[in-house]
Write a protein that binds this DNA or RNA. Structure first.
Length: 424
RNA sequence: GGAGAGGUGGCAGAGUGGUUGAAUGCGCUGGUUUCGAAAACCAGUGGGCGUGUAAGCGUCUCGGGAGUUCGAAUCUCCCCCUCUCCGCCA
């Protein structure tokens, strides 16, 4: 969400930001709405002032018992009411018209973000790890999993339809082990506080992170109007919604391992096989609530925390700086981590770390008070996967597969799997 | 799910239609006093928006929204949340 006052004073910069995302200039139309809004507000306040003055005079007259004077005054202001209500309606409509427009605009890309139209314009920043070689062509995770009898898509379809999976035995345990392993890393090594949040949230929370109103079709909604979280970013970031936190307590660092639910509307036909794109998956999320001066550093730190998981599991990956064409709605800058998948012979996204600046904070009214200052300021919010557990399972299976179809358990994970060294 | 009671400033807690943005207490900030501190005393102490170079002025805000009224913390309706009892339940 933008500050209309900022748009007013920075029309060129604002339109330039939109342009980088391939959106037409909007400042002129917004300024018109804003001028109208302020005119109506000023007018409304004039009438309110009159109303308050006369109401007090009537009150004063009645207090003195001067009923006659009160009646006279009341007759005088009789006409004011209709006008007041009309102005009130118009002003309300002007405000919501402006808010509707503002709420639908994506965040302004940070300086240095490559301008582009899609993922082809992303910039590879670095790679890590050796891409493994295999004596025979490596299998995809679902081939391995189904052959082991520990990954069942058919029965999942029986229960829930496409884009679900049933894991069993050692693979079910590995999924659980991965979540615990990641949480332990973030909480004991990187100062994140573990949170067990609701996975059903109300509309306000979904608005706060920027998923509503524009992306309702990507989300599941219950019959009594809860929204299933598509990521723990939603509950974790909204933790500070509507609050004014102490500057000294920043940054807040939250992590959670939750199921995530995505409708995957518009993804029909993509990644239909296997666990890459599911309606339900587990993810360990990292969220930071930071001082604006610290958010750039915090962004790098968070990305390093996500990378550390891949390094500990010895999974090769690369880091991308997303172009303006591939960035999410609320982000001003995003790093994607892509893990190497031998079965697919390609890198696939396993984490996305975004600095949203004050964009979400405005939507959810999350502020802090700088030391010794009167004025509050919006916090910066950051989120990143650390990591997507389902895709990490996929990556482990494909990278650690053996010629006989068994899977070696990564050393770092063995303590979390009762010492198990090999599956199958 | 049924019945009931509530939501007031950082906290506690008055206020049930009239100059109430809100008594009182606590907390906090500044000042006086003190060698210093405590105590005491004095003053200040929410957030948003509009207008203005600024000081200021205005307006909104007593869980959220809509309404009644010349006037709403106070009355009506809807929603949210908390608590108590019953039922159900992991």
């Amino acid at each position: 969400m933008y500050d209309i006052k900022w748009i007013r004073d920075n029309t060129e910069a604002f339109d330039e930001g939109l342009g980088k995302r391939g959106i037409e200039p909007a400042s002129a139309a917004l300024v018109v709405l804003d001028v109208r809004r302020r005119e109506l507000q000023t007018e409304l306040q004039d009438v309110q002032k009159q109303r308050n003055t006369s109401a007090k005079a009537i009150g004063g007259a009645k207090a003195k018992g001067d009923e006659e004077a009160a009646q006279t005054l009341m007759a005088e202001v009789a006409g004011l009411k209709a006008r007041y209500q009309q102005l009130e309606d118009e002003e309300r409509e002007a405000v919501s018209a402006l808010d509707r427009e503002l709420a639908a605009l994506p965040n302004r890309p940070a300086d240095g973000v490559p301008v582009g139209t899609d993922e082809a314009d992303n910039v590879e920043l670095r790679t890590w790890g050796e891409i493994p070689t295999f004596s025979a062509p490596p299998k995809q995770h679902f081939e391995l999993g189904e052959a082991l009898g520990l990954m069942d898509f058919e029965r999942a379809a029986k229960l829930s339809g496409a884009r679900f999976v049933v894991l069993s035995g050692a693979l079910a345990r590995m999924e659980r082990a991965l979540g615990t392993f990641m949480l332990d890393m973030h909480t004991t090594e990187s100062d994140y506080t573990e949170i067990a949040p609701p996975v059903l949230v109300r509309e306000e929370a979904a608005f706060g992170t920027g998923n509503l109103p524009k992306f309702a079709e990507d989300l599941f909604r219950t019959t009594d109007d809860f929204w299933l979280i598509p990521t723990a970013e939603m509950p974790l970031t909204n933790l500070v919604g509507g609050e004014i936190v102490d500057a000294a307590s920043l940054p807040y660092r939250f992590t959670a391992c939750t199921p995530c639910f995505r409708a995957e509307a518009g993804s029909a036909g993509r990644d239909t096989r296997g666990m890459i794109r599911q309606h339900q998956f587990t993810k360990v999320e990292l969220v930071s609530i930071a001082h604006p001066d610290q958010s750039e550093d915090e962004h790098d730190r968070m990305t390093a925390c996500a990378e550390a998981v891949l390094q500990r599991l010895e999974l090769p990956y690369r880091v991308l700086l997303l172009s303006t064409g591939d960035m999410g709605f609320s982000a001003r800058k995003t790093y994607d981590l892509e893990v190497w998948l031998p079965g697919q012979d390609t890198y696939r996204e396993i984490s996305s770390c975004s600095n949203c600046g004050d964009f979400q904070a405005r939507r959810m009214n999350a502020r802090f008070r700088p030391d010794g200052e009167r004025q509050t300021q919006f916090v910066h919010t950051l989120n990143g996967s650390g990591l997507a557990v389902g895709r990490t399972l996929v990556a482990v299976m494909e990278n650690y597969q053996n010629a006989d179809g068994s899977i070696t358990v990564p050393t770092a994970l063995r303590p979390y799997m009762g010492g198990l060294e090999r599956i199958g």
